[in-house]
Design a protein around this nucleic acid. Structure first.
Ligand SMILES: [Zn+2]
Ligand SMILES: [Zn+2]
Ligand SMILES: [Zn+2]
Ligand SMILES: [Zn+2]
Lengths: 142, 142
DNA sequence: TTCAAACTGTAACATTATAACATTTTAATA
DNA sequence: TATTAAAATGTTATAATGTTACAGTTTGAA
């Protein structure tokens, strides 16, 4: 396991005076060490190895914390969570979801494409955040 | 209420020999007549005015039917359903979701932007379907 | 050392979705 | 027209996902 991601989170908490508590640290480690996006109740199950009989809010609060601070993403169509694979923090994202094996690849683009900018301009809509989920077949499965 | 959408669905069922049953027709009407995307259990509640004591599968099956045949979309981040506002059937979609009033505007683009095509080509990923949910502020709320 | 803010523990509950199996409807066909 | 199989619904139960509310603890600053 590459720990530089966890290190970044540790540093982030130090610098921003957020408490890096046992549930927070372990929830992040669990999500980070999962090959595929992991569901809240599976996080909770894994958490129970470390923390005695944790309840849903324990997992959800930590999830919410890391999501708020952009260390993790929620894959909406899967109700599952994964760590950010981009080299910088951002919200929203683009995810390639393999219909066969369930693998999710994050393909982060910093800029919102022009064609969409035009589309929302037409609707007089002000962008705050965008999330793209692409289904298809991954390299391995095709 | 503009019924041409419902008419299209009626014709679709006739032409494809799908049964346009009471639950199906009414679920579609309920979704279509809702100003904003509507949740499954709210559909169920409205359905209970027409059908005596309907149970979740009744709503979910009809939802699944119309979704499969591309008459409705599911807004993943809202767990809610809306009829397709494009003039032709398609899957996936782009949705502008107002953070203030909850209004959802469908802004359908037929073509997947080049920049994304390139991104998935790089990952050797084969596209089948894409769904974009954009959060922000609508015209009325800004 | 007091205090308030941030955070966690715990119990209960709310919301969203599906499984499993019986029954009914429909239309084709024997 | 009786038989039949597929498509669809009815019904019961349960699974999966997420939140509220309130009590208790930890932390660091006044
Ligand atoms: Zn990311
Ligand atoms: Zn795959
Ligand atoms: Zn559409
Ligand atoms: Zn609005």
């Amino acid at each position: 396991m590459n720990n530089s991601f966890i290190d970044k989170a540790v540093i982030f908490c130090e610098q921003n005076k957020h408490r890096l508590t046992l549930p927070r640290l372990n929830v992040l480690k669990i999500i980070h060490s999962s090959a595929k996006p992991i569901k809240a109740y599976d996080i909770l199950k894994k958490l129970s190895i470390i923390i005695r009989n944790p309840h849903p809010p324990t997992a959800y609060r930590a999830i919410e914390f890391w999501k708020r601070h952009k260390f993790i993403h929620r894959i909406e169509s899967l109700n599952a969570y994964c760590t950010c694979k981009s080299d910088h923090l951002h919200s929203g994202g683009q995810f390639l979801i393999c219909n066969d094996c369930g693998t999710v690849i994050e393909s982060h683009l910093c800029n919102f494409p022009e064609v969409f900018k035009n589309a929302i301009k037409k609707k007089m809509f002000t962008l705050s955040n965008w999330n793209l989920e692409i289904n298809g077949t991954c390299k391995k499965c095709s």
